[in-house]
Write a protein that binds this DNA or RNA. Sequence first.
DNA 1: GTTAGCACTCTCTTATGGAGAGTGCTAAAA
DNA 2: TTTTAGCACTCTCCATAAGAGAGTGCTAAC
Lengths: 346, 346
Amino acid sequence: MLDERKQKILKAIIDDFIITAEPVGSRTIARKYNIGISPATIRNEMSDLEEMGYLEQPHTSAGRIPSDKGYRFYVDFLMKLRKLTPEEIKNIKDVSLYKKINGIEELLEQTTKVLSQITRYTSVALGPQLKKTTLKHLQLVPVENKRVLMVIVTNSGLVEHKLLSLPKNVTESDLERVSNIINDKLSGLAIGDISDDVISNVKKEIIGFSSDVFDMAIEFLLKNLQIYTDSKLFLYGTTNIFNLPEFRDIEKARNFLSILEDKELLCEILSNSFMSKDIVITIGSENKYQEIKNCSVITTTYKINGKTIGSIGVVGPTRMEYSKVVSIVRFLSENMSQLISKILNN
Amino acid sequence: MLDERKQKILKAIIDDFIITAEPVGSRTIARKYNIGISPATIRNEMSDLEEMGYLEQPHTSAGRIPSDKGYRFYVDFLMKLRKLTPEEIKNIKDVSLYKKINGIEELLEQTTKVLSQITRYTSVALGPQLKKTTLKHLQLVPVENKRVLMVIVTNSGLVEHKLLSLPKNVTESDLERVSNIINDKLSGLAIGDISDDVISNVKKEIIGFSSDVFDMAIEFLLKNLQIYTDSKLFLYGTTNIFNLPEFRDIEKARNFLSILEDKELLCEILSNSFMSKDIVITIGSENKYQEIKNCSVITTTYKINGKTIGSIGVVGPTRMEYSKVVSIVRFLSENMSQLISKILNN
DNA sequence: GTTAGCACTCTCTTATGGAGAGTGCTAAAA
DNA sequence: TTTTAGCACTCTCCATAAGAGAGTGCTAAC
């Protein structure tokens, strides 16, 4: 473990580097952060810290920059959470005043926008995951001859619809019968759990008393139920990275933006936070995916009816203002959960 | 008007510049494009073309580059439409094989993806505009106590839904009555035409025989009808610009990407093509909006049931491969219209 | 254990001097 | 009158060099 003086020096270096983005030298530390020792002593300590893996040196005669291990120590033990400014709080609170918020998706859109604006990084959110919710109600609405609208309502108040084309005409009462059977058999199941097995069981029962039109209809319906498992992605502030010196290199910027274009990758990254209760901070090489090994990700989850259903977070360079971002993400996630229950229960 | 030799030279310069992105000199033209005159003569002609506004010179001792006026002349009179390669055709046709295409939005998503991949520019599409379609059917589905699901079906087979929370409980038969009145009064109207006037007219009739709960319910419904007018935007290949030398300057790239983040601006830009029957090419300063005055946009529309309902296109530098992109966009838009009618009528 | 002094290293910026590409002009050729 | 060859001139781009600046590591003294 690091002794107190080493910790102080490490903290000073990281704090400074987060602000300046320049390698930090011993003189700077001695001058700006009065620890009461001379640059020479600091140099010795820095040399130790480098050997222990907390710092790195871009080249021989440069100052030090934090390694991922250094950031990890900083995040776990050293940083002091920054209080939100009144302005930041106002911005987050104001999300609820935005007139277009009529559902969770509008809320997410506004929230990611605010998140990127006040952090000045790129924000990402994963929409409510249908497969994590349970089926509450399924309704079949006749539209015209062979067209039927399937509406799914889940226990978290989410609604999805799908327009189906059946191979033959089906009467309204037939539709109602199918609805009833499905509701009877499947409601209460998590949508992700509606497997082929379950489906073929339901199918068997229906065969007992119905025509083959009926049979085809339900098969089609059930097949579609399963497709509805990919969730929407919200993204904001992608161009914020151009303010950061680490992305002044066009190839770095390109690489970063390529990540943001890869929806699947982003979903995977965001899903990581589903396990944890609170905020998840992933620093550089700690990321599972090669593409973002020089980025840090800070995510948290949001809940509907007490159940974790999606996540939201920030992507940026490893030199991230962790203290600020963590505070903001935490506050914003609390605010969001409140707003969600307000939206769903008003 | 330009004489034939000037046209030949202009075409050669633009063709060359589109490939190389370097100012084109008289010697290059004489060597690569055998027009049968010496560099000196070409220089004189180039000087004329510059004076007439078709060419520009980055600095005294550089070759010439096309001006926006030059590109306009090229696009209108000089360029030969390039035939699609078998591979390009295959890529476009294969859109229909993608398994997830169950509706217009999935189709648009796949199509923009393919468009950006084969053009190597950024592709954009505007989703079906609800306000341009007419209301066919409105259904109110009871979900639980005060919750009601409103489903809108339009004449183009588009469906939208919205979960409403009513201030008081409403019985199922009341809901049905409201549905009937709304369908009676509003179906057949373009959704964009459902104005406050129309709404208050409907409201008056309802007041005649219904309670105030009823009144509030319908007001709420109708207010929501109008919100449903902003349409979805599809974007793909934003990072393609990093392959282009004109965006090697970080500020240029940033500016371009900022445009793509401004959804409203993109919608406006794409809406421009709604007037025209065919493909619309907008070159650099021809653009209405300051932000994209150094970009070119090539768009076309797609139809549902013969009615223009959305648009799709490509955004790139003014030095765009117009000939290639126009061919691709045209073919792709035809293909799309076919697929749409297949999706809606299968 | 801590500090001052100093030589050394590496980057970054600025200046310099061709090389290269292309033009415009002039005068000769067609 | 139109076209072309020749040539001086201009501007960019690139490589090289030099010097400033920042910071280190080491040694020896405190």
